[in-house]
Write a protein that binds this DNA or RNA. Structure first.
Lengths: 123, 123
DNA sequence: CTGTATCCTGCCTGATACTG
DNA sequence: CAGTATCAGGCAGGATACAG
């Protein structure tokens, strides 16, 4: 499969979309939402190291991009559930493949880094 | 396919790897290198908008991660060719799938953005 | 041609505090 | 619980100049 001609162009819409996807937190969040809807602080607890601010920002961006939905329940205090939209669901396999690759090839990458650093050291 | 338990942990090696892949320029470069080896300035010209510095940094990181190789030819002036390593080649399909998704669903995302912005406007 | 070095600016982020 | 507002600091990234 080939990309369309304009992926390499600056500011083409495809690049904009790619920009969103090429984000660590977005990838983790999209994967986290693969199952049932999840609440804000639940995601926050699950994805270690993400700040409230960044989580909020990323969720908003993903919602704006139509990848996730936001449902507010008028409980006290309020409950908000995030879930994948149908569009977002078409992306999960791809995104998970990326993360899966990271899992599987982590060792190879770490070994390569050590070899590289050792080679630099010797110079 | 499920991720290993620790993807959600902070500073796990998998996250480190994911960090590298979740980079716009890295994705574009890896895709650009799918064919024959390419020289530095050739990549620079092809990928619009990338600066010399960022290209240099990203290439070095990808080389350190064992994803691409760097071959120096003692011509005058010197010629340097970058190519995918076997390890890097195992990643191209995944990375290209991501970019392909961006191409195919660009319109849906843009439409979602417009709808979102219009909804915000109305408030 | 293929980079590195330096400076400088702007944005991103964390920290903190506050609101509905 | 689910955010927003504000501020300060750091670091990524552009511009420019220079080197091998």
């Amino acid at each position: 499969m080939e990309w369309a001609y304009n992926v390499y162009e600056d500011r083409c819409p495809t690049r904009m979309v790619l920009d969103r996807l090429a984000d660590k937190w977005a990838v983790l969040i999209l994967d986290r939402l693969r199952g049932a809807p999840v609440r804000f602080n639940h995601i926050r607890r699950d994805i270690k190291g993400i700040s409230q601010k960044v989580l909020s920002q990323t969720l908003k961006r993903l919602e704006r991009d139509g990848l996730i939905s936001r449902a507010v329940f008028p409980t006290v205090p309020v409950t908000v559930e995030y879930a994948l939209t149908p569009l977002g669901r078409t992306l999960t396999d791809t995104v998970s493949a990326l993360a899966h690759w990271a899992e599987c090839n982590m060792d190879a990458v770490l070994a390569a880094q050590e070899a590289y650093d050792a080679a630099v050291e010797r110079r």
